[in-house]
Write a protein that binds this DNA or RNA. Structure first.
Lengths: 142, 142
DNA sequence: ATTCATGCAAATGCTTTGCATCATT
DNA sequence: AATGATGCAAAGCATTTGCATGAAT
């Protein structure tokens, strides 16, 4: 399935109208290797006619429909967004330079299953982020 | 060790001066069962003479010294703070009412050990938050 | 005495919103 | 035609900062 087909499927299933701006944002999320913030998305759209508030609104409607997951960049208050794929990934973030490395696999599958059976909650998502210092920053004393 | 002794130890070790405001904030964090936001802290200090920006500055200097860990409330951009205890805890947060339940134990100890050996990063903290719907919200259709 | 902490007010930066216009259904 | 999407400008809100004063070392 192509990105475009993927996008169209998401719009149809969610009931959101198909527009150029939404497709642009969807494409960026689709090709992102890790959660990205609004500024990064907007910068990638510098040559397109799209307003910053449209980017925000697009992302929020995607989140409301479950198409996209919202998170935060490290411990900052900057929101990040990523496509809500079946195969989710977790990341290590460098506390200094914010470099992000994607980890393979999810170490929590068993644990989440356990919680579903014992917690009384309806378990939905989980957020896991490992913080550390990347090899490069580790060697700089700043 | 009492809260006060704990606080004094933290200030001595970090080099931060001991002040009434810092002690007040430290006490609140000490007795909090889960990460709390600045507004909640400030409300608990309503009868004390303390400025909101002092609360922010106090928390940020605690974070800088590793006394406190900073996070986020659910997927919002509101910062939360908790004491950086040896025995860290994780939580389930209700996506509707923001009720927080503390989980026992950390399911990631083995995994983090593994990452320390293989990732090339100096692994520091990790953030894990489970999102779900609490028993009460689960039964309300809103 | 020096260094750091605090209050206050103003500024910052990310995000949201009201409203008129435009595009998709 | 009706409903929803977008641009633009203004507002909102959490957080930060400059500066003068006050307190801890």
């Amino acid at each position: 399935m192509t990105v475009k087909e993927d996008y169209e499927k998401a719009m149809l299933e969610s009931g959101l109208k198909m527009t150029i701006r939404r497709e642009l944002v969807y494409h960026i999320l689709y090709h992102a290797e890790f959660p990205i913030d609004v500024e990064s998305i907007y910068k990638k759209l510098i040559h397109e006619k799209i307003n910053l508030s449209t980017v925000y609104r697009t992302l929020e409607s995607f989140v409301a429909k479950g198409i996209v997951k919202k998170g935060n960049l490290g411990n900052t208050s900057v929101a990040t967004y990523e496509l809500n794929r079946k195969e989710h990934k977790h990341h290590i973030v460098c506390v200094k330079c914010h470099q992000v490395v994607t980890l393979s696999g999810c170490p929590l599958e068993q644990y989440v299953k356990h919680l579903k059976e014992t917690s009384g909650f309806e378990i939905l998502e989980h957020k896991l982020e490992i913080q550390g210092m990347c090899p490069s920053c580790k060697n700089k004393d700043c």
